[in-house]
């Protein structure tokens, strides 16, 4: 979308606006007329995590702050366990505080919990291991590692005042109605070009400057791997609907959110670390869902057909991390 070539169009629109503002008493148009204030707007969440200014002094406070810093800049503060250039806060906005963006406080009070992903009761630290292995395309920190302890302390502190073991409004992503039409690649591509590429780039690789990621990659070798939650079209559509374009929550239609989520997840990304030796076997065991395009043929290519994982997990961790 070239800024320059849209000049004629914008001129016409500007004319319409000046006409409109002469007719009505309200000055200018409101760009946020369609966009909600933030992702929490449609979740019914009432809980407010404490302010960072109130992080206690002393070693416990230091641990909480480290957890916050890991969320904001994971490659820097948890380098050993990270295999891409994403940070947790790229998907858990406002350092994990934002309702409607899978906030940590809502997650924390619901663990330990049973997870279908590995068919067992998971502790919170075990849940966090999965984030590193899949979303961060890295390796799971051992239980009790300072990285996990810091993230757990930060989550615990964010949840100050929340009752334990109760579903709280704002957890995960707000429900998104089913699309009227089946999600579609080319419609998704059109949404992507108009509403996403300015930041995430035409090629989905994101944008960095001086080695610092500004806009994270959505696919390709620096993104989340095929095992990640975001790789599910339903998770992605819900996240995008509530959080993207950045600062313009709920400005897409549900159909647009589904289409662009499909388009995003119809691209190649790092191999699923649970790789069973073939795309077919891996799909059958872990991706047997209409929401996963892993192993499906898109534009003539079988997604996931990239061979064994490049950064293989420590084999002895595989049984711990789902």
């Amino acid at each position: 979308m070239s800024i320059v070539t849209s000049a004629t169009l914008t001129r016409t629109v500007a004319l319409l606006f000046s006409l409109a503002s002469q007719l009505s008493s309200t000055p200018a148009f409101s760009a946020d007329a369609q966009a909600a204030l933030n992702a929490s707007a449609h979740t019914g969440a009432t809980f407010q995590p404490p302010s960072e200014a109130d992080i206690p002094a002393g070693p416990f406070g230091d641990t909480i702050r480290l957890g916050r810093d890991i969320m904001l800049d994971t490659p820097r503060h948890a380098a050993r366990f990270v295999g891409n250039n994403l940070s947790c806060a790229n998907c858990h906005l406002d350092a994990g505080r934002m309702a409607g963006s899978a906030p940590l406080w809502a997650a924390y009070v619901n663990f330990p919990a049973y997870r279908a992903k590995n068919s067992k009761i998971n502790t919170y630290q075990e849940r966090l291991q999965g984030c590193f292995r899949f979303s961060m395309n890295g390796s799971a920190p051992p239980l009790g590692d300072p990285v996990l302890v810091a993230l757990e302390a930060y989550s615990f502190w964010l949840a100050t005042g929340l009752p334990v073991n109760k579903e709280v409004a704002g957890r995960g992503y707000p429900k998104l109605e089913k699309p009227a039409q089946v999600a579609d690649f080319s419609r998704g591509q059109a949404v992507y070009t108009a509403r996403c590429a300015l930041c995430h780039g035409e090629s989905g690789a994101g944008q960095s400057t001086a080695g610092q990621v500004i806009f994270p990659s959505l696919w390709g070798n620096q993104s989340y791997n095929w095992g990640a939650g975001m790789g599910s079209i339903n998770n992605a559509a819900q996240f995008i609907y509530a959080n993207m374009p950045y600062g313009m929550s709920y400005s897409l239609t549900p159909q647009e959110a589904w289409d662009v989520a499909y388009f995003m997840n119809a691209h190649e990304r790092p191999q699923d670390p649970r790789w069973l030796g073939s795309v077919e076997a891996t799909r059958a065991k872990f991706h047997d869902s209409p929401f996963s395009l892993y192993g499906q043929t898109i534009n003539g290519n079988v997604l996931g057909k990239t061979g064994a994982p490049k950064r293989t997990q420590d084999k002895d961790q595989a049984h711990i991390a789902p």
Binding site: I3, S6, T10, S18, F29, A31, L198, P245
Partner: peptide, 11 residues
């Protein structure tokens, strides 16, 4: 004035 169709303006 922004043009809501121009994403940079709208943001």
């Amino acid at each position: 004035q922004g043009d809501p169709k121009n994403l940079a303006n709208a943001l």
